Simulated assay, not measured.
Amino acid sequence: MSLPPPNWPINFKTTLMRAILYVLFIGAIAQGAYLEALYMPELRFSEYGFTELAQTAVLATCCLMLIYVRHVLKIWPTVTLLLFAFIASSLVREQDYFLDEYIARHTWKILVALIVIPSIAWVVIKRHQFLDEFRYYSNTFAFGLFAGGVLTTYVFSRLYGRSIFWEAVLEDNYVRTFKDAAEEVTELLGYSLILFATLELLLLARRIYLTRQLPRSS
């Protein structure tokens, strides 16, 4: 039987500081995309441009944080496994150009299957534990941020970046770069929200971990 959740409060000062850092980070990636468009005309919004490389860096950082939460702090192992599988699959998918170019076509699909299938199978086996963990995780700020990041990246950016939308907006002035910029930058924003969500999860997991280390009163 699982223990009741410990006290997980964070004060206003800490929350404000994180909010400022998140705003600065979003400002930095927006400025990076602007500089990419300004100074990298041949590479902008391609696999070698700032935006795509930033997406890879953000997803890789998320994966490392989830590994730390799961294997070092040992908090919510089934939830973090599922999150890791989802983000690692996205990371592999972002490398599809390089995998197709330098290894073989559809390599990324095989790698994603190798990540997703065992992870989902393990979560199904441990489904009761997963539901118990998710009951707590779903009521956290981290979950809200993660949901927002997923909706931004996998729903809004796909719809916003449709060619037919930009063809309708720009009409005879349509150039594919507009579509690529809209989709890739919005996608990076969504990944950034997932990064914030993963960081919030790590900080929450650390508070839970430290609480568990406290001696229990008899």
Rank of each mutant, 00 (worst) to 15 (best):
G27I: 07
T14G: 00
G190Q: 00
F86G: 05
L21E: 08
E171T: 07
L35D: 12
L83H: 04
Y136E: 10
L170G: 05
A113W: 10
R212V: 11
Q213A: 06
A104D: 04
M65K: 03
V155W: 13
T107H: 01
A205P: 00
L188E: 03
E101Q: 14
I110L: 15
F178S: 15
P215E: 06
E171G: 08
L16E: 15
L145Y: 11
I29R: 05
L21V: 13
T140S: 15
P41T: 09
L83G: 06
Y174R: 09
Y209T: 01
M65G: 04
I120A: 15
I87R: 00
Y191D: 07
K126N: 15
F130L: 12
E94C: 06
R127W: 14
N173G: 14
L159Y: 06
S157D: 08
Y102V: 08
R158D: 03
P77C: 02
A104S: 08
F156W: 14
L214C: 02
L201I: 00
W76Y: 13
Y174I: 06
R207S: 14
E101A: 15
T140H: 13
E42T: 12
A28R: 04
A147K: 04
F196S: 08
S138G: 11
F156Q: 02
V79M: 01
R44G: 05
L199M: 10
L82V: 11
L66S: 01
A104M: 12
I20N: 02
F86M: 09
E200F: 15
R127N: 09
R127S: 10
I10W: 14
A28M: 14
K179C: 14
G161E: 00
I75N: 01
I26S: 03
T186L: 11
A104C: 07
L43I: 11
P77S: 02
W166E: 01
A60Y: 05
L210N: 08
E167W: 12
T107L: 10
Y136V: 11
V169G: 08
T198A: 03
T80H: 05
L81P: 01
G190I: 00
R93F: 03
T177Y: 13
P118S: 03
Q95E: 02
F146S: 08
L82W: 04
Q95M: 03
H106T: 07
P6N: 05
K74H: 11
A19Q: 07
L188D: 02
Q95H: 01
P41C: 14
L81D: 02
Q95I: 00
F86I: 05
K126H: 14
R212N: 12
L91K: 00
L195R: 00
H71E: 04
R216V: 10
L214A: 06
L189S: 10
I10L: 13
E200K: 15
Q95L: 01
A168E: 14
I87C: 01
T15S: 09
P118F: 04
R70E: 03
E36R: 03
L82F: 08
